[in-house]
Write a protein that binds this DNA or RNA. Structure first.
Lengths: 191, 191
DNA sequence: GCTATTTCTTAAACCAGCTTAATATTTTTG
DNA sequence: CAAAAATATTAAGCTGGTTTAAGAAATAGC
């Protein structure tokens, strides 16, 4: 049960049978169909989510009209609106499945309780959060360093699995481009 | 000794006298004059730095010519190139003082040793890293949501202390604007 | 205080990427 | 399979913000 989660955690800390059981008990598994919402604008983001299988996107509504995607999450990725999750403030984000997905969720009360019961998990999450900070430093660097065309090409090379699984207009949104411009870039760079 | 650091950690975890001594022993204090470097491009970023007093900036060189600032750090902020620090890879960044500064640094070996000796610190850094992730989610949201003019005005309102202490062209760089455009915005929005 | 250096301003020409609007293609659903 | 919905393309016109180049003002060093 929760095979991907347990094997992911095991990469960073030593887990005995007993700890595995404790972890399994704190996470609530849910199956979602494509386009179901885990969070909607205005709600407090009550849970931290782990993607066992599938794909999620997080987005907000820009100028009251367009969806601006800020994050994707696939297998073995964590996702939440941390501000909302930590401070219990209403979130400006939607979190929605892009495909049918199997998600493990832990609400903030359980999260604190789990960290209390199993202090080893402090270490796991410290390491995961550090890696997340590293990744976001890199993302910001690319945003400042690359033109939008270069940013798009770099993304295609770095994450080819996304191109397969996520519609082009969502990738455009995530990169801060218009779908029309991505279309132009594809034409230019394919032929 | 290390008064700001200890009081910052105490906000998140309970520290007894003994733990305080352990922490103090792991951090190396250094005074830097304005414009001294803590890290230069090509070096491995060996330490995680805490600003007791002063101001740092982190930047890289864009198109081999212009300095692109990605982060500032003032009193009670942590700064490092996490990719370089964690994976011991050469860094593309410079970390430099903007003012005379008093900095506490811990290299990665000492960091691991401290976390071993004082597992409570896993919790402190887990919490700090979570807050850092929250802040960077918010930063990316603003980058996508606001025009460059709005982004500049928002920054001025949110961090007035920066406007006092950091030259305008560095703020322009941090926000991804040209200094010329910031000049134009000031003129437009002041009068 | 004087000089050099750093920082800031002004203004005109320019362009990467957006907007708009219409059409075409692909996928989903009954 | 047919119709509807979702996704992708094309092309022309436009604009927010950059580039370039010069000079002005402020700050720091001696």
């Amino acid at each position: 049960m929760h095979a991907n989660l347990i094997s992911h955690i095991s990469k960073y800390i030593e887990l005995d049978e007993c700890s595995i059981e404790v972890i399994n008990k704190y996470f609530k598994p849910t199956d979602y169909k494509k386009k179901e919402f885990l969070l909607q604008e205005g709600q407090v983001c009550k849970s931290l989510h782990f993607v066992e299988k599938g794909c999620l996107r997080m987005y907000f509504i820009n100028n009251k009209t367009t969806e601006q995607i800020t994050q994707f999450a696939m297998e073995n990725w964590w996702i939440t609106d941390f501000f909302s999750f930590l401070d219990k403030k209403p979130s400006p984000y939607f979190i929605q499945t892009v495909e049918n997905s199997h998600i493990l969720s832990i609400d903030s009360v359980s999260y604190d309780a789990m960290l209390q019961e199993l202090p080893l998990m402090e270490r796991y999450f410290r390491i995961i959060m550090q890696r997340t900070v590293a990744a976001s430093q890199l993302r910001v660097k690319y945003m400042y360093e690359l033109s939008k065309e270069e940013f798009y090409l770099h993304f295609c090379n770095s994450f080819p699995q996304f191109i397969q699984r996520v519609p082009q207009y969502m990738i455009a949104s995530y990169l801060g481009l218009t779908p029309e411009y991505v279309s132009e870039l594809r034409k230019k760079n394919l032929s």
